[in-house]
């Protein structure tokens, strides 16, 4: 469990994190979102004890990060921003060093190293120097290191950055698989990742929390939530008829007039009336579907609104 209470942090006169509070329970995967410079990495660095807080308290597994830092750090597996590693070490030497520094030894260490290498598919490069590895492999070495001591808490700063789509898919599946009995924070700026792996999303902007909700709840805040997209085979002959349907607030269309998006009043379900109208007029339909909402739209609304 991670408890963050009223935590602030400044660099010089610039306040990067401002009275931030949240908590993540075991079994949850928290997606930590925000524009660049919003304070995500700084917050993660404070949770892991790398940076000191300027006010507020952080507890990890019940241990205060400031007063009982070693016990707190022992609970955490941490992938720092950019997945740093000692370039001159081989993958195995790197994992062995960090394992030993965390108190693992002997057959336990060997087993854990073999296990995490298998999880993130590092076996083939175990004897290679990290400097010779591609970005994707380095990221996986960083993940392996974070999982090595089987920590109850995982703090992962952009775990899928630099991975190809297959590897991204794999790492997301890995995180989901780990989630059941762990507390996980994943920072990302890839919004689809939130829907794919996170049980909750925390959005910050300028060091302040602007949203803390499930991905579904966030989608509901989108203008596109329950919007109907209609794609016709030819330009729509009568868009005004669509716009005047009950419950429709606005209509957007592409340059050709073939793809139309109808925005509903909050809570209104307009897809049936749209479908009926299309059937009545016998318009040739290519596709008609209801949008669940768009996270990027919500993200923009929340993080820009704060800046204004």
């Amino acid at each position: 469990m991670i408890e963050v209470e009223n935590v602030s942090r400044s660099f010089g006169r610039h306040r990067v994190v401002d009275s931030l509070s949240f908590r993540v329970n075991s079994g949850e995967v928290l997606g930590f979102l925000g524009p660049n410079g919003a304070g995500k990495t700084t917050t993660m660095r404070m949770i892991t004890g790398y940076l000191a807080t300027h006010g507020g308290t952080i507890r990890v597994c019940g241990h205060d990060v400031a007063s009982d830092g070693r016990a707190a750090r022992a609970c955490i597996g941490y992938l720092p921003e950019g997945a740093p590693a000692w370039a001159d070490m081989t993958v195995n030497a790197f994992l062995r060093f960090l394992g030993e520094a965390r108190g693992l030894a002997g057959s336990t260490l060997e087993q854990r190293m073999a296990h995490v290498s298998r999880l993130v598919e590092l076996e083939d490069v175990a004897q290679q120097r990290i400097e010779t590895l591609s970005k994707g492999f380095r990221r996986r070495v960083g993940l392996a290191q974070a999982l090595l001591h089987d920590p109850p808490v995982l703090v992962l700063d952009e775990p899928t950055d630099g991975l190809d789509p297959n590897q991204k898919h794999q790492v997301r599946a890995l995180i989901r698989g780990l989630a059941s009995d762990r507390t996980i924070i994943v920072s990302t700026h890839i919004l689809e990742e939130v829907e794919a792996v996170c049980s909750r999303a925390l959005i910050i902007a300028n060091g302040r929390k602007v949203a803390d909700a499930t991905p579904m709840e966030l989608l509901r805040r989108s203008d596109f939530h329950q919007a109907v997209q209609l794609r016709l085979k030819e330009p729509c002959p009568d868009p005004a008829a669509l716009e005047s349907l009950p419950g429709v607030t606005r209509l957007a269309r592409d340059a050709e007039g073939r793809v139309l998006t109808l925005f509903p009043q909050p809570g209104a379900a307009i897809h049936e009336s749209v479908a009926n109208l299309v059937r009545e007029r016998n318009w040739p339909v290519e596709a008609l579907y209801v949008e669940p909402g768009r996270l990027d739209d919500v993200f923009r609304k929340l993080t820009r609104g704060d800046a204004a």
């Binding site: 004890g49 790398y50 022992a74 955490i76 921003e81 590693a85 965390r102 108190g103 290191q145």
Partner: peptide, 14 residues
């Protein structure tokens, strides 16, 4: 410079 200081300082060591 390489960021590995973060790995060192987040170990459960004094």
């Amino acid at each position: 410079r390489s960021g590995t200081v973060e790995l060192l300082m987040t170990l459960p060591l004094n």
